[in-house]
Amino acid sequence: MDFWVWWLIAAGGFAIALVLTTMPELGMLAAGAVAAAAAAGLSDSLVVQVIVFAVVSTALILAVRPIARRARTQPPALRSGSDALMGRSAVVLERVDATSGRIKLAGEVWSARSLGEDDSYEPGSQVSVVEIDGATAVVM
């Protein structure tokens, strides 16, 4: 069997391992094996094929890892659910204190309580949502 077939079998093995383990480095190794298969089709030298495999795999890993690390550490661009409500302004409908109250937030009426024990807000005042605790907005 020709070397290019073995390289494609190796690429398939790396791809299967990638799916099973979700390690992106294995995808880079699979791409390196495909490049080595192409080199095997052009050259019979096993040394050239191994060098192509090593160079392509290493280059892909060095190029993709910083991008993946940056994507993993940044917060998502689109917040949804209760995360999207934090930091928004609301209007007090019924007096809000440390135990109860009502606000209008994003067009809906929410139960609310103040963040501080001694804080209270009268109807008509603007408040900011600090967090969502179950179905209650914590405001300040």
Rank of each mutant, 00 (worst) to 15 (best):
I51S: 05
A54K: 07
V55T: 08
S57F: 05
T58K: 12
L60Y: 02
L60Q: 01
L60P: 00
L60A: 03
I61T: 14
A63L: 11
R65V: 08
R65S: 07
I67F: 13
A68Y: 09
R70M: 08
R70G: 02
A71F: 15
T73E: 10
P76N: 04
P76L: 04
S80D: 01
S80R: 06
G81S: 06
G81Y: 06
G81Q: 07
A84D: 10
L85E: 00
M86W: 08
G87L: 08
S89E: 15
V91K: 15
L93I: 09
E94Y: 03
A98G: 11
I103C: 02
L105A: 06
L105V: 05
A106V: 10
G107V: 03
G107A: 04
E108M: 14
E108P: 07
E108N: 15
E108H: 10
V109K: 13
W110S: 06
S111T: 13
A112P: 03
A112F: 04
A112V: 03
R113N: 07
L115N: 13
L115W: 14
G116M: 10
D118Y: 11
S120A: 14
Y121M: 05
Y121V: 05
P123C: 01
P123W: 00
Q126A: 13
V127L: 01
V129W: 02
V130N: 09
E131M: 08
E131V: 10
I132P: 03
